[in-house]
Write a protein that binds this DNA or RNA. Structure first.
Length: 136
DNA sequence: GCCAACGTTGGC
DNA sequence: GCCAACGTTGGC
């Protein structure tokens, strides 16, 4: 059983379309211990919801972990880690933050509870509910 | 642009 | 080791 996650990205900086264009990308720059713990817990093949923050405010696609945690070369102190992600598919229909907030099945989602956390776990039930909202 | 949440830093 | 000040994220 693979685990599921959610990552945030500002589409102005790096959008899901950018990930599709690149084929895969190094997910670095995370500078938060809780988020780093989640990165370290990711296994190859784990699927990841790709959320657009600031602009869009919606989950727009699914990505997968293609390389597990390794030292983040962009962190001079060497404390933080990065992973590599590849695109799986864009959602048929983006699921907006307001829809997520209104969905009881997602009430306990970590990303809703801790809005600043850039990498967070998603339970199996939450994963299924969200994909259903996205049109299957 | 504002502000709430929250992590980090630094003085004591 | 406490806690006030400060910085950053991200929704509104």
């Amino acid at each position: 059983m693979t685990a599921h996650w959610l990552v945030k990205s500002e589409p102005n900086t790096y959008s899901y379309a950018d990930l599709e264009r690149d084929g895969r990308t190094v997910w670095d720059g995370v500078r938060n211990n809780a988020a780093a713990l989640h990165l370290k817990a990711m296994a190859a093949g784990d699927e990841v919801l790709f959320y657009h923050s600031q602009e869009g405010l919606a989950v727009v696609g699914v990505a997968k972990v293609v390389r597990t945690a390794f030292p983040d070369a962009s962190d001079p102190a060497g404390r933080f880690v990065a992973v590599e992600l590849a695109p799986v598919r864009a959602l048929k229909r983006p699921v907006t933050l307001s829809e997520m907030k209104a969905e009881p099945a997602l009430a306990d989602m970590v990303m809703l509870r801790q809005s600043r956390l850039s990498v967070s776990p998603v339970s199996d039930d939450q994963w299924k509910a969200l994909l259903k909202m996205a049109g299957g």
